[in-house]
C-alpha cells in the first residue's frame, strides 16, 4: 500500500495549521479592537469559508491563482512557478477553508480575557508586547491550542477545494480524501476501506485531544 497520500495529507494539514494559527490569532486580536461596523463586516468575511461549500472556495481561489488569472499569471511569467496542481497548492485551499475555525476559537478565547489584567499590566509599566505574550496569550492558551488542533483535524479532511486546486495525481497531489474518492470511483473498494479506516482513526484521536484540552475549565484568579 502506497502511503504517499497519508504523508501528503499530514504535511498539508500541518503547514496549513501553522499558517492559520498565526493569521487566525492576529485576526481575532485585531478584530476585538476594531470599530463596530468594521468588526461586523470583517467577522462575516472571516467566517464565510466555514459555511460556503468548499467548491465555491476552490472556484474563487482558481479565479485568483490559475495560470490564466492575475496572480497565477504573474508567478508563472516572473518566476516560472505554477501555483495550481502542485502538492502545496492544497495549502492555499486548506488554509482558507480552515481559517474560520482558528479565528473563531481564538476570538472566543480572547473575548473571555479579563481586560483588567491588561490594564493592571499597563499601570505597572509593562510594555504592550509583554502584556500580549506573557499575560493575554497564556490566559487564552487553552482555547488557542484547541483551535489549532481542531484546525489541523479539519485540514486533514479537506476535499472539495483541494481537489479543484491541486487535483489528484498519484504520488504528487494525492491526499487521503482525494484518494478515497478516486478509489471508490475506480471500484477499488478494498483499498478505499483501508484509507477510510485510517482517516477515521486519525480524526478520532485528534478530536480526543481537543476534548482533553477543553475539559479542565480554567479558574481565574
Amino acid at each position: 500500500m502506497d502511503l504517499y497520500p497519508l504523508f501528503n495529507s499530514l504535511r498539508i494539514a500541518a503547514i496549513s495549521a501553522v499558517i492559520v494559527f498565526f493569521i487566525g490569532i492576529a485576526a481575532a486580536y485585531y478584530i476585538a479592537k476594531a470599530p463596530r461596523l468594521i468588526k461586523g463586516i470583517l467577522d462575516v468575511i472571516f467566517t464565510l469559508p466555514l459555511v460556503l461549500p468548499p467548491t465555491v472556495v476552490g472556484y474563487l481561489l482558481l479565479l485568483l491563482l490559475s495560470p490564466k488569472r492575475p496572480v497565477g499569471e504573474f508567478f508563472l511569467e516572473n518566476y516560472g512557478i505554477r501555483l495550481t496542481m502542485q502538492w502545496w497548492s492544497a495549502v492555499f485551499a486548506v488554509s482558507v477553508v480552515v481559517f474560520p475555525l482558528m479565528y473563531r476559537t481564538a476570538r472566543g478565547a480572547f473575548e473571555r480575557f479579563d481586560e483588567d489584567l491588561a490594564s493592571a499590566g499597563r499601570t505597572l509599566g509593562l510594555s504592550n508586547s509583554y502584556i500580549f505574550w506573557r499575560i493575554r496569550i497564556p490566559y487564552c492558551k487553552q482555547g488557542i491550542i484547541a483551535g489549532a488542533v481542531l484546525s489541523f483535524a479539519r485540514a486533514l479532511g479537506e476535499y472539495g477545494a483541494t481537489s479543484m486546486i491541486a487535483g489528484y495525481t498519484p504520488g504528487k497531489t494525492a491526499t487521503v480524501s482525494t484518494a478515497v474518492y478516486q478509489l471508490w470511483r475506480t471500484g477499488n473498494d478494498e483499498l478505499a476501506i483501508k484509507w477510510v479506516l485510517i482517516n477515521i482513526a486519525i480524526s478520532a484521536v485528534v478530536l480526543l485531544i481537543v476534548n482533553l484540552l477543553e475539559k479542565p475549565k480554567r479558574r481565574c484568579a
Binding site: 479579563d114 490594564s119 493592571a120 499601570t123 509599566g125 499575560i135 480554567r218 481565574c220 484568579a221
Partner: peptide, 21 residues
C-alpha cells in the same frame, strides 16, 4: 500619556493578579 508613563498604582477591585504567574 499612556498608563505606563503615568506612574499611578492601581489596586483593582478583584486585584487583577496575573493567573499564569
Amino acid at each position: 500619556l499612556s498608563p505606563q508613563k503615568r506612574h499611578i498604582g492601581y489596586l483593582f477591585q478583584d486585584y487583577a493578579l496575573f493567573p499564569d504567574m
